[in-house]
Design a protein around this nucleic acid. Structure first.
Lengths: 339, 339
DNA sequence: ACGCAGCGTATTAACGATCATACAACGTCA
DNA sequence: TGACGTTGTATGATCGTTAATACGCTGCGT
C-alpha cells in the first residue's frame, strides 16, 4: 500500500539517460554500448531497482502466472501434485497462484473467474466433479489454456490424469485373484462425482462373474482417516461382511486398517485392504498397504508441458487431448502375507 | 498470449458511453443514474466483461495478492498451514502466490525477490533457518509487510508461530515424568537450522538433573517416515539405548514406530515415542502417538491478521511483534498404556 | 560537398484501468 | 433574466513498462 518503489524513471534520473534507454540497457539490448549499459546497471543496482512485473504484464499481455485450482490440498495425493506442479512451473519461469474450491462447484467457478480476472496465462484444475465441466469447456471455447488433472477420455478439455478406472480395476482384480468373492468398496457414491474408480471396481467384479452388491459399498463422505474408519465400520458390521475392501485412497485405507486393529481382526487373513495413491504412510503402516501407485511427477510434468504448449499457441487452440497414465499395483502385506 | 480481452472500452463502444462512465457504472457510483447503470451492466454481461486486475493493480498500487513461501509443502504440518492460510486470505479478498524454497537459502532469496517484483502486498514466510534472517529483516526495513510462520522471540521480524521450544519441553518433561532417564531425540542438528525443539529437549533434561547425551541424538536429514525409521535404527542399535525418543515431527515418529514393529519391540513398554504436530496419521497409528498439538488455524489466522494489519499501515511499520502459541501435549498410547 | 547509413538516444504512444477535473445542459430562485 | 447549483457525462493525466518511431550526429563513399 503505497510503499516506495524504485522505477525505471529513478534510474533514468540518476544516470541522466531516458527511461527507454535504461529499459533497453537493463534488458541487455545490443543497441546500447557496453559502457553505457554498465553505468546504467550499476545505478540500478545501487538503487536496488526491481522491475515491476505488473506494469510489464500490462504491456506484454502475459503474467507468467498460472492458476492452480485444487479441491483440497490436505489430500496427500493433491499435496504431492501441488508440490511437483509448483516445481515444474517454476523451472519454466511461471509462478503459481493457488486456490482451493473446497469441493464446492460455485466456489470452483468463483475461483476460476478470479484467476481469469487476474489474467493468469493458463490454469491447471483438479475439478470437483468429472461430470460438471461446462464452465471449464466454456473457458476453453474462449481460447483459454486449461488442463485438467483428472478426467475421463471424453471430457472435451485437455487433461492429464492417472487412469483411475484401470487402477481400481487392477486393485480389485488382484483381490479376486487372491480368492476374494465378497469385495467391499469405500468411495464416494455421489452420482455427479467421480466414479472412475467405482466403474473399475464394477468392471473387475463383472468380468469375474461376480455381481456388485450395493450393500458392500460405503460412502466415506470425505477422504480422511477417520472417514475410512467409520466407512469400514459400516461394512464390517454387516451380517455377511466382505473379506476384502477396496478404498479410493490411502487415508481411507489407513482408517479401515485402524478399524481392524481396534476390533481385533487380522489383515489380510480376516479382511484384505487395498488403497490408492501409494502415499508414504501406506508403505510404512502397521500392516504395509497394497496400493495403486503411479508416478505423480509424470502426471504433473505432462500436464504442465501441455499447458505451456497451449499457452504458446497462437490463435485457436488445438483439439483437446486427454492423456491417461497407467498405474501399477504395489502388492504389500495388507492383501498378501509375505512367505 | 494475445487472447482476446473484453475491455471497458468495448463496453463503452457498445453502449455509446465513455470509458469513464462505464467504469463508474460498473463500480456502482451514485453519480450514474439507475437506468444508465442498468444498460451498462447488461452490456458488460453480454460481452462477458471481466475487469483486468493487472491494470487495476497498476493504478491502485496494490495487487491483493500475498506471497507464501514454504520450505516444502509435503511436510504435513505445512500442508495444513498452507490450506488454512489460503482460506483465511481468500476470506479477506487476497489471492495466494505460492512457492517453495526446497530448504535452500538462495532459492528462498530468489523466491522473495520474485514476489517483490510481482508486487505482492505482503509475504508469509516459513524460513529455511531461524538464524539466517538478514534478507528478511532487510525486506522489513524497506517497509515491506512480512510475517514469519516460525521464529524465536528476538527474530526482529513479525512472526506468529507455535512455541516449539515449549512444546518440546513439555514432551520431554512428560517422558521424564513417566520415569524415563535415557531419552533420545530425532531432530535436525544443523547449527544454522532451527534448534528450538532441541533447546526445549535440553532444558527439560537439565531441569530434571539429567545431562543430555550427544550419542542419543540422531539427525534424520529430512522429515519423512523413512528418515525417522533410519534415525531410530541408529539410536536403538546403541549398546546403551534410549528408553524413550522425542521426534521433531510425527512423520519421523511414525518411522520410529515402524522400526519398533519390525524389530519386535513393544511401544511404550520397550521404548516410548513422542511426536510433534499431531497430524491425523499420528492419532490413528498402530500405536496411537503421543504428540505435541496446537491449533494450526490459530497460528495462521493470527499470522494473516497481523499481515493484513501491516499492509494497512501507512508509512513506517510498527515494531515487530512475535506471537508464540502455546502448544499442549496429547498423551496417547505411545508413551502411556491405557489402563 | 552532398547524400546516406548507422549509431546512440529520445520521444511518443500504447497496455487497461482509475481519479481528478472539466464542462455541457438543465433547473432554481432572486 | 441571469447567476448559480446540480446532474450526467467526457476528457486527460497517471500507474511503470515496452515498442515503434523519430532525430541528431558522425563517418563514409563518390
Amino acid at each position: 500500500m503505497g510503499r516506495p518503489i524504485v522505477r525505471l524513471k529513478d534510474v533514468a534520473d540518476k544516470t541522466g539517460f531516458s527511461v527507454n534507454t535504461v529499459s533497453l540497457a537493463l534488458r541487455g539490448s545490443p543497441r546500447i554500448p557496453e559502457d553505457t549499459a554498465i553505468r546504467i546497471r550499476d545505478a540500478a543496482r545501487d538503487l536496488n531497482y526491481m522491475p515491476n512485473q505488473v506494469a510489464k504484464s500490462l504491456v506484454s499481455r502475459e503474467t507468467k502466472t498460472i492458476g492452480l485450482v485444487l479441491t483440497d490440498i490436505t489430500n496427500p495425493a493433491l499435496t504431492q501434485a501441488a508440490q511437483s506442479i509448483e516445481l515444474a512451473l517454476a523451472e519454466r519461469g511461471y509462478s503459481t497462484l493457488f486456490a482451493t474450491s473446497n469441493n464446492d462447484l460455485d466456489e470452483e467457478k468463483r475461483v476460476i473467474a478470479m484467476f481469469q480476472s487476474r489474467q493468469v496465462d493458463g490454469m491447471l484444475i483438479y475439478p470437483r466433479s468429472h461430470r460438471e465441466l461446462d464452465h471449464i469447456r466454456q473457458l476453453r471455447r474462449a481460447h483459454y489454456p486449461v488442463v485438467l488433472l483428472v478426467a475421463d477420455p471424453d471430457a472435451g478439455v485437455d487433461a492429464v490424469s492417472v487412469d483411475e478406472r484401470r487402477g481400481a480395476y487392477r486393485a480389485v482384480r488382484h483381490l479376486i485373484e487372491m480368492g476374494h468373492k465378497r469385495i467391499g468398496i469405500i468411495d464416494s457414491s455421489n452420482p455427479m462425482g467421480n466414479h472412475e474408480k467405482r466403474d473399475g471396481y464394477v468392471a473387475a467384479l463383472t468380468e469375474a462373474g461376480l455381481s456388485p452388491d450395493p450393500t458392500l459399498s460405503a460412502d466415506p463422505q470425505g477422504h480422511s482417516v477417520i472417514r475410512g474408519y467409520w466407512a469400514m465400520d459400516k461394512l464390517m458390521r454387516l451380517a455377511d461382511r466382505p473379506s476384502a475392501v477396496f478404498t479410493a485412497n490411502d487415508s481411507l485405507a489407513l482408517g479401515a486398517l485402524r478399524w481392524t486393529q481396534k476390533n481385533g481382526l487380522q489383515v489380510p487373513e480376516d479382511v484384505a485392504i487395498v488403497g490408492f495413491d501409494n502415499i508414504e504412510f501406506a508403505e510404512h503402516a502397521a500392516t504395509p498397504l497394497t496400493s495403486v501407485n503411479y508416478e505423480i511427477r509424470l502426471v504433473t510434468d505432462l500436464a504442465v508441458a501441455r499447458l505451456i504448449e497451449l499457452i504458446g499457441t497462437e490463435g485457436a487452440l488445438p483439439e483437446p487431448n486427454v492423456t491417461l497414465i497407467d498405474p501399477e499395483l504395489i502388492v504389500r502385506e495388507s492383501t498378501q502375507r509375505r512367505l
